[in-house]
Design a protein around this nucleic acid. Structure first.
Lengths: 340, 340
DNA sequence: GTTAGCACTCCAAAAGAGTGAGTGCTAAAT
DNA sequence: ATTTAGCACTCACTCTTTTGGAGTGCTAAC
């Protein structure tokens, strides 16, 4: 168990390190106004904290640096998220007050602002389709065999696919087809679309469409859309400002990883409620093992539909960042629930 | 005027430098099989070439490095684009043979492949709307006052905007409105849309819509879409592999610049036919003054509609890159003209 | 339990020495 | 009139050595 004084010293040290990015020595701590014991005492305590694994030295005679266990403890026990500064609050409110009609724009802007407020890279996972339902399907011929199929979801998301019209079906039939689709599929949750098509539509087709096998194939083709959720980045180059990324090699590994959709999905996938902090080695993904990732979930009708996150060096301004993410994720939840 | 031998030496030197990224000395050149004069002779020639501004030294006793003027000359006079390797050709053909229905996918893939083949960052400017015409407008209500307006162009591009339905107009009228829009605007080039709306539609509205002022405002709102063309990147982090970007500071400046849409537009804007090479300081944009930019134009019905480009260090594999861009841009042109 | 004092450690930056690739110039060779 | 061999000179790099300073751990005194 840590003594009151050890807690204090640990906190002071981590705060200092987060700010100055330099190993913190006993003298530095003893110089603080609110510290009333000598550097020798602190040295003893530091040695103990190191033995317990909360601190590390970069070399035998250097000051101490927080270990990942140290950060973990700090985040779990020592952290009282700072109240957002009025400047921050202004910024956020501006964002959500602005009449940003397109959902996409909101995400883009949020990502941008988030990264600008924090100087870390922000990643926002757009709303998952799970909860949303299909609102409308439209097929617009482009001339020739080409056409565009357009899908609108209940959250106003528009998805479109180019398709080739099948040969064996008359144009009027295609119209009938689309009408049937609209009639039968409007209101169906996206997640159940495939099921629904397979179970119900084939029957209907058999009745109304001559070449119903061709039609089925065509439908399958149209709906072969990946349910991919969109990813929004903000400040992808922010890491380049962090001293821990002064080495190009490291930057490359990280940036390359972030280009990979799969990596992002792995990082931001299934999130429990609230805020999750993942520190360094705790990360699943190799490439971000020297980073910390902070995720916040936002929801629709009480169900998690997306994630807002920040990624930065393990030495992160946890205090500020956590408050910020919390606020924004709640705004997102409000926004979605109010709008749709 | 450069002598035959000087031309030869310049070419050899630049080729060597592009490959090895190290100042080239007289000895290195004299060691080549096809060189039959001594290093002393070469030294003399190099000194002359330096006087003329085609070469530079990094310090008094270093080998020579091409100057930007040197590259310029090299590109303009010494370059015979290499015939693409069969591997390259395969890759490209694969790309265009694949049944990539969505235009967007083609761009994405092209950008990716281009950067992978070259190890430079590729930037593709999607087709400008100028030549394309409007194909279809659709307004899909989302419930409440919200709706999605969808525009499909003749190239199959889909644009969508969220809008708030105006209060003072009946739902049936909105339907009429959209019908009118479709009737009057289908086939109109995007560039002329605004004009057309202002000139013709107001009259029609006055006839058919009660609250035609409200309607006009609404229409204005809908069409207040920026004619922005999409930008596709490939291998944004490729520069990090180039030795000239071993310095994080430089990387940051460049990557930050590339995040700016305005910068990209400035870089890739209005392009004459064929291939343009912009070397270092010739660049308009400060941040890319130590890069070279190679642009190729692709066109639709004979008019330039977009740009394919690569950005890399001034020491670029011009030979290969130029051939590659040429081929791909032509494929693009073919694709567009064949498809629409 | 706390602290002053001191020996010890190690990094980082500075200073110095040696090496090698490269140049420019001159004088001889072609 | 070119071309080339030879030589002195330059400068970046690398490797060592030196020095200074910040920091630690331990011990003995408070």
């Amino acid at each position: 168990m840590l003594s009151e004084r050890q807690l204090f010293i640990l906190q002071v040290l981590i705060d200092d390190y987060i700010q100055h990015v330099e190993p913190v020595g006993s003298r530095t701590i003893s110089k603080r106004e609110d510290v009333h014991f000598s550097s020798a005492t602190i040295r003893n305590e530091l040695a103990d904290l190191e033995d317990m694994g909360y601190l590390e030295k970069t070399h035998t005679s250097s000051g101490r640096v927080p270990s990942e266990k140290g950060y973990r403890f700090y985040v779990d026990h020592l952290l009282s998220p700072t109240i957002l500064s009025t400047a921050d609050i202004f910024n956020i409110q501006d964002l959500f007050n602005e009449k940003l009609a397109e959902t996409e724009r909101i995400f883009e802007q949020s990502a941008k602002i988030l990264s600008e407020l924090t100087n870390y890279t922000s990643i926002i996972l757009g709303p998952e389709a799970l909860e949303t339902t299909l609102k409308h399907i439209q097929l617009i011929p482009l001339g020739g065999q080409q056409a565009v199929a357009i899908f609108v979801t209940s959250t106003g998301h528009v998805e479109n696919r180019h398709v080739s019209l099948p040969g064996g079906i008359a144009p009027e039939e295609i119209e009938t087809l689309v009408n049937i689709l609209n009639e039968k599929l409007t209101g169906v949750p996206l997640a159940e679309l495939h099921q629904k098509i397979r179970d119900e539509l084939n029957l209907v087709f058999r009745k109304h469409i001559n070449n119903h096998q061709q039609a089925s194939l065509f439908i399958d083709d149209i709906f072969k859309w990946s349910n991919r959720d969109k990813i929004f980045f903000g400040g992808k180059t922010k890491m380049l400002y962090q001293p821990e990324f002064r080495d190009v090699e490291k930057v490359r590994i990280l940036l390359d990883a972030l280009e990979e959709k799969t990596v992002i999905e792995q990082l931001l996938s299934a999130n429990n409620e609230g805020i999750t902090v993942t520190i360094g080695q705790e990360n699943q993904v190799e490439a971000v093992r020297n980073c910390s990732l902070i995720k916040a979930s936002y929801s629709f009708h009480g169900k998690h539909i997306g994630t807002i996150s920040l990624i930065g060096p393990t030495r992160m301004e946890y205090k500020r960042v956590i408050g910020l993410l919390d606020t924004i994720s709640k705004e997102f939840t409000n926004l979605f629930n109010a709008r749709y």
